[in-house]
């Protein structure tokens, strides 16, 4: 690892300006551009002398920092650049499914199924949480209710 060369103040100020001008550029491109411009400056200063005239010559070669920034790729906006995360299933919807499945096992007690169906309908109408999970719970709860009704009817007919 070679230590960064000490630049004349004029060049240091230019590099600081460039770093600032590239603040909104794509991070990797920004880092590589800064490193390459530093190398260019060091090479050119070694060639032409690091006095004031040499420093001005280097800055003339490199050109305005704004022109370099304009030639760089803008960084992708964080929100737009990142892929949308899949919506997490809220705990309420998980419990809703648990209740619906439990109602299937306890279909002789239709109160549980009725609670699952009502809760699922309320959440679906509210437009909150995971709709697919809520629809599943609604379907399972309905099956439980139908089962309970069938059991009741068969009892009545048998009685």
């Amino acid at each position: 690892m070679t230590a960064a060369p000490a630049f004349p103040p004029l060049v240091e100020a230019y590099l600081a300006d460039l770093e600032h001008a590239l603040a909104a550029s794509e991070p990797r491109e920004r880092a590589e551009t800064l490193a390459a411009v530093r190398e260019h400056a060091a090479e050119s200063l070694a060639l032409h002398g690091s006095d004031d005239a040499g420093a001005r010559r280097v800055l003339d070669e490199l050109g305005p920092v704004d022109a370099i920034a304009a030639a760089s790729t803008p960084a992708a906006p964080a929100a737009a650049g990142a892929p949308a995360a899949p919506a997490a299933t809220p705990a309420a919807d998980v419990w809703l499914v648990v209740l619906a499945v439990a109602s299937l096992a306890l279909f002789v007690v239709p109160l549980v199924a009725a609670a699952a169906v009502i809760w699922a309908v309320v959440r679906l109408r509210a437009g909150v949480g995971n709709r697919r999970v809520q629809t599943l719970a609604l379907a399972v709860g309905t099956v439980s209710l139908v089962g309970a009704a069938a059991l009741y009817v068969s009892h009545v007919l048998a009685g």
């Binding site: 460039l18 550029s25 990797r28 491109e29 590589e32 551009t33 390459a36 411009v37 260019h40 070669e61 490199l62 050109g63 305005p64 920092v65 022109a67 370099i68 304009a70 030639a71 760089s72 790729t73």
Partner: peptide
């Protein structure tokens, strides 16, 4: 090139 400095963002893109 607008100026020599504008070469470097371009080189970075070519490398990527």
């Amino acid at each position: 090139l607008t100026s020599e400095g504008t070469l470097y963002p371009l080189l970075s893109r070519l490398r990527q």
